[in-house]
Amino acid sequence: MATDFPEQIKELGATLTSIEKVLDLDAMQREIDELQEQVGAPDLWDDQANAQRVTGRLSTLQAQLERVQGLRGRIEDLEVLVELAQEEGDADSLAEAESELTKLQQAVESLEVRTLLSGEYDEREALVTIRSGAGGVDAADFAMMLQRMYTRWAERHGYPVEVYDTSYAEEAGIKSTTFAVKAPYAYGTLSVESGTHRLVRISPFDNQGRRQTSFAAIEVVPVLEQTDEIDVPDEEIRVDVYRSSGPGGQSVNTTDSAVRLTHIPTGVVVSCQNEKSQLQNKASAMVILKAKLLALKKAEERAHLDSLRGDVQATWGDQMRNYVLNPYQMVKDLRTEHETGQTQAVLDGEIDDFIEAGIRWRRGQEAEATA
């Protein structure tokens, strides 16, 4: 059946119009103009933290506006291409138009998902912590597989990743890792990945070739800015320093530069060993600690609201996604029911469909909770 170009292009244009209204492009342009004035001020860099905030916000808004305007231009160009191709009966141009239509539909759908990220911290960069759970060496290996999956996902999108701390397991894999994904909306996007992930496969570490089930936990928190209100008195923090180490206990540093911070009232512990300087590691660890304490505070507030509502069901179950490599190939999200048989592609970082389904699911849950 031939593609109904006029109808599909009309639907695409209408969807983009609704997105433009949600994003409020006029207000976005006004904020860009104001930020550009601030960037032009000669004393901007006297306050480096504020300068980074201003330039970062400006860059984010400009990229978002250009993205929307670019899609609008592509839709208009497609309309002209289809009209000319149909008039001249140009089959090659119609095939090109069909390909572009598919790409545009995917791009607009992805942008529509972005408009669902309206939480207080959704625009922030993300701190991701992965911990191996039950399953011994297979769980440690699974944790490393997940680290690779999210790193590959970030690379596909051109998002920088900075690893703060990795604790290697003795035989293979990792006990835990914490890394930052440095991109606008990384927190809002990746926060739906929080929870327990489960792997089922023939264990490469079992000489009898038995099937093994293992677990890993994902925690995602937003990177905080200096303006965020989270006060951590010095007397509430215990600081331990130790020597950085790599896989197999190999020393990667000859001084005690790695830093471990313990927040005494809550028991939250964070480590950082990516920098050569103890001072730098302490500063990075403090960023992570504050982010985790803020997430803890927000979780307590949500739990309190749930108790007031009489809501005894946890929104996020302990197990949110299964990765089955044997006896069949399947990755399935237990919340959204989204699934695929392309397990290797998922483990190579192709997880956008799962993330988008998770964001839509979360918005549905929020709508139900406020109804």
Rank of each mutant, 00 (worst) to 15 (best):
T315W: 02
M145F: 10
K175N: 15
P222V: 04
G70P: 05
V268W: 00
A41I: 03
R72L: 05
E170C: 11
I130F: 01
W316L: 13
G119M: 07
Y187H: 13
A183Q: 09
A91G: 00
F354A: 03
A180L: 10
N322C: 07
D352K: 07
F205S: 08
Q36K: 10
V270K: 00
R335S: 13
E356M: 13
D353G: 06
A314C: 09
F5D: 10
I355D: 02
A91K: 11
L65S: 10
K297W: 09
S167M: 06
P204L: 06
T166K: 01
L325R: 09
A14F: 06
L94T: 04
E193M: 04
K21S: 14
L25C: 13
A357T: 11
E98Q: 15
I355Y: 04
Q250E: 11
F205H: 09
V22N: 07
A143W: 00
T370M: 12
K290R: 15
F179T: 05
E7T: 14
A169E: 09
Q52G: 14
E66H: 13
H304L: 11
L58Y: 00
S245F: 06
T340H: 03
S59V: 02
K10L: 14
A314I: 05
L347Q: 15
D231C: 11
E37D: 14
T102S: 15
A91T: 05
R335D: 12
Y328K: 04
V22T: 15
Q250L: 12
T262P: 10
E236Q: 14
S245R: 14
W361E: 13
V259S: 03
T177Q: 00
A63D: 14
N326P: 00
A2K: 12
E339D: 03
A63R: 15
Y159Q: 10
Q280P: 01
V22D: 14
E109K: 09
F5C: 06
G13I: 05
V239Y: 01
I351K: 00
V82H: 04
L84N: 08
A107N: 12
I19M: 07
L94D: 02
D256V: 03
V82L: 11
Q106P: 02
R67S: 15
A180C: 05
E170P: 08
